[in-house]
Design a protein around this nucleic acid. Structure first.
Length: 425
RNA sequence: GGUGAGGUGGGUGAGUGGCUGAAACCACCAGUUUGCUAAACUGACGUACUGGAAACAGUACCGCGGGUUCGAAUCCCGCCCUCACCGCCA
């Protein structure tokens, strides 16, 4: 949620930046400015009326105390008019605030100045690439064939147990998965992140805090019986740990990491390129989250990018980093880097990580503040997060790129975790 | 699931209709004292909104929402949550 004072002070600048994200409903900005003015004058009226009412009440109390009953009774009549006014102003204010919040929640975050105004994924800027693309020719098998051949994963079994898009990992496939989880968590811990195990079900307030509600409501599984949402990413519980907090500057940076399964309905996204593990309803992910001082958040973003790169390099996977253009960036982020690894058999890049700075967009919703040591006032923090890493697709790439006639090679860094060097039949 | 108790500031906890935005104590912060540390002493010490250049002033908030009353942390109603015991259970 954008900060109201930016909209109030620089509505044209806000519109200009929103245009970079190809946000069409710029009239919302004008409506917000209008509502804000109404809100303030109504607030003033309410406060003034309340002030009169409070003053009268005190006088009445004093009169009773000194035994002047008749005078007190006479004064009570005056309060009736005030009471009606107060009720009216109060109702008006509530209505205005409700609409204001409703409008505010519709605006996406303003993009960072480095974000290009492109529209589609093709317009994303490749920041850098690493590693040589594997050349395997046409006999390279896609990971879904490899999974069958080596009995690593079954989507059919998932259908039997749950439904389409719920993979069941088997034997060496399951062990590979567990190895990666441990490897990624160790990497995060070595980089200074506190490891956290958080709930997989969250309430609506939490989902709102990280902007998953109302913006992406249809993307989350909802447990109606108890009004819980299944988390689409650990970002949701991990960031909300700090909701409604006022931090000290010495608390920065807060670095937490957690492994969780992630649940996504992925409504409406079916087709040829979502085969196998490319897009599933449940996958495992290690998420890193940082809460940082506004002056340092972009340094932190770079640090997180370097962290993800380090993992991909240890896994010996060719990757590239994209700076998302305005049209492809997510609703809440100011700047996002996507990481893609190249899958040899599918001959395409697969997104395996997304690292973002949300600036104050989430913290404003969460009322996550810190006390500025100079001004002593509270300010909103910046929040950042990134996948380090998302599992299902990493496994897809790894299987495809490391296939040999004798089996599938496990990268050296992972071998201590898997306990085997090669996946064999 | 059943029964009972309770939700007050960072923490403990007082407060049953006006003098309470809220005692006291603890913690935190600043300072004094002190070879250092500790202790002791002094002071400051909630959040948000509105008006104001600021100083400052007004308003709201004692789980949330409504109600009674001139006036509610305090009385009434609904909801949420927590704790204890019993039952069930990994």
């Amino acid at each position: 949620m954008l900060e109201l004072n930016i909209i109030r002070e620089k509505p044209d600048y806000v519109k200009e930046r929103l245009a970079v994200k190809h946000f069409g409903q710029l009239e919302i900005v004008d409506r917000i400015v209008e509502l804000d003015i109404n809100r303030r004058s109504t607030q003033k009226n309410l406060d003034d009326s309340l002030n009169k009412s409070n003053t009268l009440s005190k006088e009445i109390g004093a009169l009773y105390k000194t035994g002047k009953r008749e005078e007190a009774e006479a004064m009570k009549a005056q309060t009736n008019v005030l009471k009606e006014q107060i009720k009216q102003f109060h109702d008006d204010l509530s209505a205005i605030e409700e609409e204001l919040k409703g409008q505010l929640v519709l605006l996406p975050n303003l993009p960072h100045t480095s974000v290009s105004p492109g529209k589609t994924p093709e317009d994303n800027e490749v920041v850098r690439s690493f590693g040589d693309l594997p050349e395997m020719g046409d006999e390279a098998k896609p990971h879904w064939e490899l999974c069958d051949e080596y009995h690593l994963m079954s989507l059919e079994l998932g259908v039997k147990i749950a439904g389409a898009g719920f993979p069941v990992f088997l034997g060496q496939g399951a062990r590979l998965q567990r190895a990666m989880i441990n490897f990624f968590l160790d990497e995060a811990r070595n980089a200074g992140y506190q490891e956290i195990v958080a709930p997989l079900l969250v309430n609506a307030t939490t989902a709102f805090g990280t902007c998953n509600l109302p913006d992406k409501e249809g993307q989350m599984y909802f447990v109606g019986e108890d009004n819980f949402y299944l988390i689409p990413t650990a970002e949701v519980p991990l960031t909300n740990i700090y909701r409604d907090e006022i931090l000290k500057e010495s608390d920065f940076p807060i670095k937490v990491a957690g492994y969780t399964p992630c649940f996504r309905r992925e409504a409406g996204s079916y087709g040829a390129h979502v085969r196998g593990l490319n897009r599933v309803h449940q996958f495992d992910k290690i998420e890193i989250v940082q809460i940082q001082h506004p002056d340092k958040s972009y340094e932190t973003l770079e640090e997180m990018v370097v962290h993800v790169e380090g993992i991909l390099q240890k896994l010996e996977l060719p990757y590239r980093i994209l700076r998302l253009c305005g049209g492809d960036a997510t609703f809440a982020s100011a700047l996002t880097y996507d990481f893609e690894t190249y899958s040899a058999a599918q001959k395409r890049w697969l997104e395996v990580s997304s690292v973002s700075n949300f600036e104050t967009f989430q913290s404003n919703r969460m009322k996550l503040r810190f006390r500025d040591k100079d001004t002593k006032k509270t300010r909103l923090t910046h929040t950042l997060n990134g996948s380090a890493l998302a599992l299902a697709r990493i496994i897809a790439t790894l299987l495809e790129n490391n296939q040999t006639p004798d089996g599938i090679k496990i990268p050296k860094a992972l071998q201590p975790y898997t306990g085997f060097e090669m996946i064999t039949k």
